[in-house]
Simulated scan of single mutants.
Amino acid sequence: MTENNPISLVVVDDQATVREALAVMLDLAADVTVVATATNGAQAVEAAGRHRPDVLLMDLNMPVMGGVEATERIHGTRPDTAILVLTTFDDDESILAALRAGASGYLTKDSDRNTILHAVRTAAQGQTVLAPEVQGRLLALASRPVPAIAPQDDGIDLTPREHEILGLIGEGLRNPEIAAKLVISEATVKTHINNLFAKAGFHSRADAVRYALRRRHPGDRR
């Protein structure tokens, strides 16, 4: 995105002071335009349909309709809109629920302006954005012993290396980190990711993260 083609953004938060401060702060960036604000999830769904924003900054705990339900609805009808959660909650349940609903990023409200702006720009490029503390929680979840799931169990015929890379994506690792961990080139990582995306029908890295998390928590099919 450029100044001539700025990132269109909707800010959703039930607290007026927070919502207005975020809208003003982010709209000051030359490459971001706040096209609307919303006070709850129902308004967020309406704003997403009306304005078709590139990114939607979403709170979780709101009246009328919460952020998780709104995220799921928007992701189902507007998959091209990246939904970036910005909330006070960093517990496992909130993080997993938001990612499974379709969020492509998760930040906490103690994030500073530069961090939020960077996350908005990254999300607009179709990449997953996780706050360090959120990534830490996902890594902790990933380290828990879980039953292995064979490729045929979920109907996707991935190679062992593709399964390995999928797991690392689910842990929040980016391509350079995956390459370093597996001692392979980043180009090789990209090739494996392209192959597994094609096999699994993923449209974004967020889809891969959610799928990897579901594999680790097979009892939860949200």
Rank of each mutant, 00 (worst) to 15 (best):
E3L: 15
N5E: 15
P6G: 14
P6C: 12
P6A: 13
P6M: 14
P6Q: 14
L9T: 14
V11F: 13
V12T: 10
D13Y: 11
D13V: 11
D13G: 08
Q15S: 06
V18S: 08
A21I: 05
A21L: 12
A23P: 13
A23C: 11
A23S: 15
V24H: 13
V24F: 13
V24E: 14
M25T: 14
L26T: 00
A29T: 14
A29L: 13
A29G: 09
A30F: 12
D31Q: 15
D31T: 15
T33S: 15
A36W: 12
T39E: 07
N40D: 10
A42R: 11
Q43P: 01
A44V: 02
E46L: 04
A48G: 09
R50H: 08
D54T: 09
L60M: 03
P63K: 05
E69A: 11
E69W: 04
E69F: 02
T71M: 06
R73G: 04
I74T: 07
I74A: 03
T77E: 13
A82S: 13
I83T: 09
I83Y: 12
I83N: 03
L84M: 08
L84S: 05
L84I: 09
V85Q: 02
L86P: 00
L86F: 01
T87Y: 06
F89S: 05
F89C: 02
D90M: 03
E93D: 07
A98N: 00
A98K: 00
L99V: 09
R100V: 05
G102Y: 00
K109H: 04
K109E: 02
S111D: 03
T115A: 09
L117H: 03
H118A: 10
A124H: 06
A124T: 11
Q125R: 14
G126S: 07
Q127D: 11
Q127P: 04
T128Q: 05
T128D: 02
T128R: 06
V129A: 01
A131I: 07
G136E: 06
G136Y: 10
L141W: 09
S143P: 03
S143M: 13
R144V: 12
P147F: 10
A148D: 11
A150I: 05
D154Y: 15
G155Q: 08
I156W: 01
L158P: 01
L158T: 02
T159D: 13
P160E: 07
E162H: 00
E162T: 01
E162F: 00
H163K: 12
H163W: 03
G167D: 03
G170P: 05
G170Q: 02
G172C: 07
G172D: 09
G172N: 10
G172F: 09
R174A: 12
R174Y: 05
R174W: 06
E177T: 10
I178K: 14
K181C: 05
V183E: 01
V183D: 00
I184P: 00
S185H: 13
S185C: 14
A187G: 10
K190I: 08
K190F: 02
T191G: 11
H192F: 01
N194S: 14
N195H: 14
L196A: 09
A198N: 11
A198D: 14
K199P: 00
G201D: 02
R205D: 10
R205I: 08
A206N: 06
A208S: 11
V209M: 12
Y211Q: 11
L213A: 07
R216M: 07
H217E: 08
R222Y: 04
